[in-house]
Design a protein around this nucleic acid. Structure first.
Lengths: 215, 215
DNA sequence: TGAAAAATACCGGAAAACCAGTAGCTATAA
DNA sequence: TTATAGCTACTGGTTTTCCGGTATTTTTCA
């Protein structure tokens, strides 16, 4: 994998000097010409984007940053500059964290314990326009933890239906009219939903449902 | 990739007979011993799992099924049998669809226009405990469409804070107490949030926010 | 075919959310 | 140094949700 050398430009956002040094060294060994631009905080990098208007490019972002967290940073980067390719570089090894990062526009995820070869391979994948997950990240994504499902309440068909309408902002009366049932019935379903999700409002119920892909 | 032959068992859920035939042929060429079990509807497959209690194994699921949609089927399969490895096999090429599938526990996603080699490669990856995305799926995941971000309302720090609390089911009074502001202020933020998201209730606002990774 | 689960429906009352409009005070960026 | 954006706060009123308890009718499945 070290064979195909070329010229690349890459930004790194991480508050650990050692990590910055290490990455730079690895990259210099792997490519003929590397120019790295390092930042210690998310704010610095956002300013850089605003100023220089860097349309495209690759950036490695640590998830634990002093000012803002990497997930939020990722979304802001993508908002300001959708062409920028964001790779997460983190210790977090939970499936949900990887999912969130991808949902917010990241093109890849590298665990910090990845080998040098793996890092280079991922960057090459990213340059090639593919999603770049390190080996361990791929394995984490492949096996969602069992408990993620067994503890969730089982909703009936009608409850799911009402939940969807509630999440669309409809009132009980409106839902009742649409489904040709009494508003009081809809209210009953609402209460059952809140009880099943163990929450105090439908707003919270919608959040939990969304978190678990029920909506 | 056709070199490493071995014995595999695989289930396929698809209502197109041609697809079932095609997949079986490809698999038989790629592996020494293949046993395929085919189903035309989601319900049939769920019954099979309930009966036989198949703890593990690989299943290819089409997203467009006559009875239930593949995303919902995936979550039900994972609920009944978390050890089962689900690969989506579909024509849908939207990033959001792939994300939803992964969020509901799928271990991979194959576009239906994938080559035979690609299908086999993905199944091998899945057998190896990795996430399996076909080439095109990887590319789709790598580049989230630009418009996904530019049309979203920009929330202020305070608004995000209130949104989080609302999504947790807290009342305006409770939030106000916690943030040391007037309940009336919280109400104002609520209204601004609804206006920005262009929805009629906070419930709907939470849904939109969740859909876009803002929570 | 019988038990369990689901869907339907009601009452009365308290709490909270939503609506429309206004406005001062503060930090920040052009 | 002005705009501008964001945070704060108010009045007064309407609508909706949420809570408690109960109960009949379908549907489903063992």
């Amino acid at each position: 994998m070290l064979a195909d050398k070329k010229k690349i430009t890459i930004a790194i956002v991480d508050d650990h000097p050692i990590v910055l040094e290490g990455l730079q060294k690895v990259l210099m060994q792997a490519y003929d010409y590397v120019s790295t631009i390092c930042f210690n905080t998310g704010g610095e990098f956002l300013n850089f984007i605003k100023q220089s208007g860097t349309g495209t490019g690759i950036v490695l972002i640590d998830i634990n940053l002093p000012d803002i967290n990497g997930i939020e940073l990722c979304r802001q980067v993508k908002t300001l500059s959708p062409g920028t390719c964001v790779l997460a570089f983190s210790n977090h090894n939970e499936r949900s964290t990887i999912m969130k990062m991808l949902q917010n526009g990241a093109s890849g995820y590298l665990l910090k314990n990845s080998s040098a070869d793996e890092v280079v391979a991922c960057i090459n994948e990213a340059l090639d326009g593919q999603i770049a997950l390190s080996r361990e990240a791929k394995e984490i994504m492949a096996k969602p933890s069992a408990r993620d499902w067994q503890e969730l309440p089982a909703l009936t068909k009608r409850e799911k239906e009402i939940l969807k309408h509630v999440a669309d902002g409809k009132t009980s009366a409106a839902i009742a009219a649409q489904l040709h049932v009494s508003p009081l019935t809809v209210e009953t379903h609402r209460r059952n939903l809140m009880q099943k999700f163990n929450v105090k409002s439908m707003t919270a119920a919608v959040k939990v449902a969304m978190e678990n892909g029920l909506l």
